[in-house]
């Protein structure tokens, strides 16, 4: 079965490989496999690639290969998607201090849904989230799997500064701010985890295909974790999990 539906030029130094136009576990798995094949092939003309919800964009060196040749080469990889073993997914457990000063909008989010703050925390922490892709800002995960019961519109007036590590909700999305930045998300908590640490050999906490679980911590534990994170220690536990082909994140 051919998983690749479209192959298109993106200017003169990238190719967009389009998969089925739906956000799903299946498409994500195909994309992960495709990227695993790219990694394995290590083609000298390929500079980098960007996996997204339904596509992979491959950047190449036009001094080494022209569009027709690279497009054909990429198309031929599609047969291998089914034969390569999907790498096992990682499950990252991310500590969050919910509410209070660090989660100034938790109260409003709870009120919006006629729920208690505890219920919002429970709904936010009970499921696993899927990292579909990274983008927008360094290390920012596009997460799928937020409970329908806490979808909340953005703030009417964005904040001038939201600090790095803030955990928020915007519509049907939840996410973590990797950098201090302006933002309109409803901020319900804060994690000591650093999503982008440029001084480390591996500067990014997340990768596309990861699973993520939030868990609540109390102020004392949070303060300890902050200290550890500042020393460069990891405050996120990472396990490897088998991905069930029929599993759905939501």
């Amino acid at each position: 079965m051919n998983m690749i539906e479209t192959i298109k030029p993106v200017g003169d130094r990238a190719v967009r490989i389009g998969f089925k136009e739906e956000i799903s576990d299946t498409v994500l798995r195909h994309i992960r496999s495709f990227c695993a094949v790219l990694e394995e092939e290590n083609h000298s003309a390929i500079v980098e690639w960007v996996p997204a919800y339904t596509s992979v964009t491959v950047f190449y060196k036009q001094e080494l290969v022209d569009y027709d040749d690279i497009a054909l080469w990429l198309e031929q990889l599609s047969d291998r998607i089914n034969h390569i073993e999907t790498p096992p997914a990682r499950l990252l457990s991310v500590p969050v201090l919910y509410g209070g000063e660090k989660g100034p909008d938790l109260k409003e989010v709870a009120a919006f849904h006629n729920r208690s703050e505890e219920e919002v925390i429970k709904l936010h922490t009970e499921g696993d989230y899927l990292v579909y892709m990274l983008g927008f800002a360094p290390g920012f995960p596009y997460l799928g799997g937020l409970s329908n019961d806490i979808h909340t519109p953005r703030l009417d007036k964005p904040r001038q500064k939201v600090s790095a590590g803030s955990v928020g909700i915007a519509g049907e999305q939840t996410g973590i701010y990797p950098l201090d930045s302006p933002g309109g998300w409803q901020i319900i908590g804060h994690t000591p985890a650093r999503l982008f640490a440029p001084e480390l050999d591996d500067p990014f906490l997340f990768r596309a295909g990861d699973r993520l679980r939030f868990y609540p911590v109390k102020k004392e534990e949070y303060d300890e974790l902050i200290v550890r994170a500042e020393k460069g220690e990891s405050v996120v536990t990472i396990e490897t999990v088998e991905v069930d082909a029929n599993e759905h994140a939501n």
Binding site: V47, E48, W49, V50, P51, F59, L134, G135, F136, A137, P138, G139, F140, P178, F196, P203, F204, R207, A208
Partner: peptide, 9 residues
């Protein structure tokens, strides 16, 4: 800077 677009940089 090459190689980090897949991580959002």
């Amino acid at each position: 800077r090459e190689g980090y677009q897949q991580f959002g940089l």
